[in-house]
Design a protein around this nucleic acid. Structure first.
Length: 555
RNA sequence: GCGCCCGUAGCUCAGCCGGAUAGAGCAACGGACUUCUAAUCCGUAGGUCACAGGUUCGAAUCCUGUCGGGCGUGCCA
């Protein structure tokens, strides 16, 4: 809708310019901004175009606004355009526009608000990518909800999206994992071990160790060197933990197009090649026995080690190789979703990408802030040191995937999230998940009751002019916003906007439902109202589908 | 020390690519169920947008500084 109006404003600007009413240089590169009107008396939409243009044209804003409205082609879209305040132009749209909104929702259904399929940019969206050294925690869950939703949102808007999970199954931490399990295994066999502080202490480590007991692997370990044993146990543990992670993600409703193993980067010599490429481009050099990536001071504050003096590449080197590999696969854009504790890492990776000959803008990083679990009003401490923490699975088992997903998306990604366990389980207004789902269930219920009672619920040729109530108009106008919300959420990569939109829609619907009956005697009003509430149901279902949350027909 | 993010109602948060009178939910208080689900609705109250400057016709929004919170600043990942 905003696009339509934007176009009309732009045309008005061009027309006025051609007539000489506006100086041409004023409007060269000018983005028309259209917003939803805040209040009914300001119409339906507004633009600040005249205010912006006035400064450049050296004219009075209200005068510019007048010129624009004079040159505006109203067509069958705009009923009235008036200049208001300091120079806003307020647009009142025709009733035909609002009628068409309902028609197009019923026509497009689950594709309402979606863009023409698959002609947008090719995007690789990487998210979660938790190390396979332990179960997923709640923060990973938030990243998963944001990533998975974003994937569907971008697809809905025509981006060609693929999702990937980067598995850090190489290097030092795999050795630590292997040793952690191996030590527990030896303890089980009666040896006394002094367990190192920096090793993984969670109970799942001991579980893995006891799983090894009595297997072929247990026997094979006896004849291996220490290094071989650590490697073998590490691979076993990694496999098992990754299985667990995939299981949890599956339960959460999250799936990937691909998993990418860090180990394969080494097996195919990609890390060394990347370091070599950086050397060739003069961006890496040896110093103190190590190989350093030389940073432009504009990019980051210091040089970073790529290959340690021991000859072992750093995580950074592997990550540079990984991003090079991703870019080499022909994507227009890489989106990475990271925990915000990695934010210092962004300039580094971006600099590496640029040094390897790609635009630094080819990488967009979304930083997801931490989640604090709250129960009975108290924050639950997340002790990572002991390895005993509340896992994503624990939360999913307690509140269910729908509530968890929705809650993870009730805040902007970069803001701290307090996850209230009690609230997530509550079945009332306080709980936004139920509130939105209930709107869907209520509409479904109307049609169910109609069917049960033999009431005619046919929707052909509704007379929408029968929807005369102000709250009906408000509902329709909110439904009209949905495509703009999706477009803006996709463009700004902010999936939480959908959540907020749905809560607003549910609120409007519940109030309408409360005050007005749909299944009336009057066949014309009844049909029109059925047509309206079904449109509400379709949009709620549409939005929940993008969030990956169920839209139940009864609750 | 330096860098990044944050500071909006008692609480949890929207709004932040400058625009018209700063919004919502919860909690508090007061109301509404013979109706298609009360898992709902209606009303009241609640604010120096951390603070101080600056830019602008106009600042919660942009810039600078101060204070407070989080994170980062490894030849860790």
């Amino acid at each position: 809708m905003k696009d339509t109006i934007r176009k009309l404003v732009r045309e008005a600007v061009e027309t006025a310019m051609r007539k000489g009413a506006l100086p041409p240089e004023a409007v060269d590169s000018f983005a028309v901004e259209v917003t939803r009107a805040k209040e009914p008396r300001f119409g339906d939409y507004a633009t600040n175009a005249a205010l912006v243009l006035a400064a450049r044209a050296g004219m009075n804003p209200r005068e510019v606004a007048g010129i624009l409205t004079d040159n505006l082609s109203r067509g069958d879209v705009i009923e009235k355009a008036e200049v208001a305040g300091p120079g806003f132009i307020n647009f009142f749209l025709t009733s035909k526009v609002w009628r068409d909104v309902l028609y197009s929702i019923h026509h497009a259904r689950e594709r309402y608000g979606h863009a023409d399929p698959m002609n947008g940019p090719k995007v690789l969206l990487e998210f979660v990518s938790a190390n396979p050294t332990g179960p997923l925690h709640v923060g990973h869950g938030r990243g998963a909800a944001v990533g998975d939703t974003l994937a569907r949102l971008l697809k809905a808007r025509g981006y060609r999206v693929e999702t990937e999970y980067y598995v850090n199954d190489a290097g030092n931490q795999m050795r630590i994992l292997g040793r952690s399990v191996l030590f527990r295994f030896r303890e089980l066999r009666g040896e006394t071990i002094s367990f190192p502080d920096d090793h993984y202490r969670g109970s799942y480590i001991a579980d893995l160790a006891s799983e090894i007991m009595g297997t072929q692997l247990a026997e094979d370990l006896l004849s291996m060197t220490e290094e071989q044993a650590v490697d073998a146990v590490g691979r076993f543990a990694c496999r098992r933990i990754l299985d667990g992670i995939q299981n949890d993600l599956d339960f959460f409703g999250v799936s990937y197009d691909s998993y990418f193993s860090e180990r394969t980067l080494y097996e195919h010599d990609k890390v060394a090649q990347t370091v070599e490429e950086l050397r060739r481009r003069g961006r890496a050099e040896e110093k103190d026995g190590a190989i350093w990536f030389s940073m432009d001071s504009a990019e980051d504050d210091k040089d970073r080690v790529l290959v340690r003096a021991t000859g072992e590449p750093t995580y950074f080197a592997a990550d540079a190789a990984y991003h090079l590999d991703k870019l080499g696969r022909g994507y227009d854009l890489l989106i990475d979703i990271w925990g915000s504790d990695h934010h210092g890492y962004v300039p580094r990776v971006r600099a590496a990408i640029e040094a390897l000959g790609y635009s630094p803008n080819a990488l967009k990083v979304i930083l997801v802030q931490f989640v604090t679990l709250v129960r009975e009003g108290k924050k639950l401490s997340m002790s990572t040191r002991s390895g005993e923490f509340i896992t994503l699975r624990d939360v999913l088992d307690e509140v269910g995937p729908d509530a968890a997903r929705f809650f993870f998306l009730t805040k902007r990604a970069d803001s701290h999230l307090d996850f209230d366990m009690d609230l997530a389980k509550k079945q009332s207004r306080d709980n936004p998940v139920y509130y939105v789902q209930y709107a869907h269930a209520r509409v479904s219920s109307i049609f169910r009751i109609a069917a049960e009672r033999g009431i005619d619920a046919d929707l052909t040729d509704p007379d929408i002019t029968a929807l005369t109530l102000p709250e009906e108009q408000r509902l329709i106008k909110h439904l009209a916003d949905y495509p703009d919300v999706l477009a803006e959420a996709a463009e700004s990569v902010e999936p939480h906007r959908i959540t907020f939109y749905l809560m607003d829609l549910a609120e409007l619907f519940h109030a309408y439902y409360h005050d007005n009956r749909v299944l009336l005697e009057d066949p014309v009003v009844k049909k029109a109202r059925l047509y309206l509430v079904e449109a509400v149901r379709l949009v709620v279902a549409n939005g929940l589908r993008i969030l990956g949350v169920a839209a139940p027909e009864r609750m």
